[in-house]
Design a protein around this nucleic acid. Structure first.
Lengths: 208, 208
DNA sequence: TAACATGTATACTGATCTGTATATTTCATA
DNA sequence: TATGAAATATACAGATCAGTATACATGTTA
């Protein structure tokens, strides 16, 4: 009896998605041909098309993996850096700074993907939008736990996300000007916004 | 006597750059073939290659045109909306909101281009970085005229740019969630940052 | 050993890509 | 009318693209 039916639990499939994640991140989606992924992954072309119906499906699998890994690492990192929600809102920007310092940093894969796949109803673009929604939801929950009311928590979360996305983009486009600076400037701005939104909330309020 | 030698002052050349600007913005760079630009512009292929040595040069010309137009429109719009530098810093976000409301809005062409052309020393990526530097320089000058000192003006400018870039990206990736909201949230945050950076500076100080 | 799923190798299709070669047309100016 | 630049039409080169067809190898399980 053969356990690992596609699409799950195949070593070759994993290698494909892993390689796709790396190459699509580094070189772009249209600019990276299937053949280069196959060569780098050490997998035959027919194997790819037994696991995925098209290049688009491979891209979607790579984006799913990236979303899962990125948010896990981000949330775990934030929760490790600070224990109270208010501190965690600030710690997000230290986590970003770490990410930017990675020599392989190539910006946000979802921003990059939605730049190449403009149509909103395209599954790739939809996956990018969903990723951003999930990140913002996490920030909003932190803001709520920190004591921001409604709609304050939603607005604060949106504003902190704007700072984060801006830092990601500027570090991608102008790394030499912003490598270390964008995250720091964003963190300082975030501190002000958080203090303002949480004015009157006692420090270290009922943490989760 | 024939006046308009290439590369300047050619009607066909202008049509090419104009069409390239539209199509590359809307559909992406790799995804838009030369042939589609030629067809949409109503220009023969040989004409293109008499004015430009390669597709990359056409892209660079389109980016130059976009940079010039975008910054002109932005600066003029801002200067029309408010007379004092402090008000102009805030007015930037109203200008963004107007831009986002354009049905043809497809994000920042320079963010999109640098997503597709990752290498920093690639001329296309370099042009994108330069555009962002010029925008930030304008914001920094406004901040200085508003009375922010050094390094306060530089930091404030960087922070306001992060908010702007973040708003641009979120409106591109999740237009349905952010169409009107991102610019407003950014403006509110900007107001706080500006007030903080200019604390102690008399309102409507020596404007330019 | 027989069955079966996974993966491979090779070759191919048909489309599309950037860029070029060549010969011709258009049209204002001198 | 003669010159010469701008633009065109057509065809092509050479590469790469996503995706398919077919036959074969491998390794595990029943």
């Amino acid at each position: 009896m053969v356990r690992p039916q596609p699409p799950a639990m195949s070593k070759k499939r994993d290698q494909l998605v892993e390689t796709a994640l790396t190459l699509f991140s580094r070189e772009g989606f249209h600019a990276t041909g299937i053949d280069r992924v196959l060569e780098a992954a050490g997998v035959a072309k027919m194997t790819l098309y037994k696991h995925f119906r098209s290049k688009e499906e491979l891209i979607l699998a790579a984006l799913r993996l990236r979303d899962e890994r990125w948010r896990n690492r981000f949330m775990r990192g934030v929760e490790k850096r600070a224990k109270d929600p208010r501190g965690r809102l600030l710690a997000m920007f230290d986590e970003l700074a770490d990410w930017f310092a990675d020599p392989g940093f190539s910006g946000c894969m979802f921003i990059n993907a939605s730049a190449e796949y403009a149509e909103l109803d395209c599954p790739i673009h939809a996956a990018c939008a969903e990723h951003k929604r999930l990140v913002e939801k996490y920030v909003r929950e932190l803001a709520e736990r920190a004591g921001a009311g409604q709609p304050g928590a939603g607005i604060l979360a949106a504003q902190l996300c704007l700072l984060m996305e801006g830092a990601i983009v500027m570090t991608r486009v102008c790394p030499d000007d912003n490598r270390g600076c964008a995250a720091a400037a964003a963190k300082q701005a975030a501190g002000l916004l958080i203090d303002h939104a949480l004015a009157g909330v006692p420090t270290d309020a009922a943490s989760g």
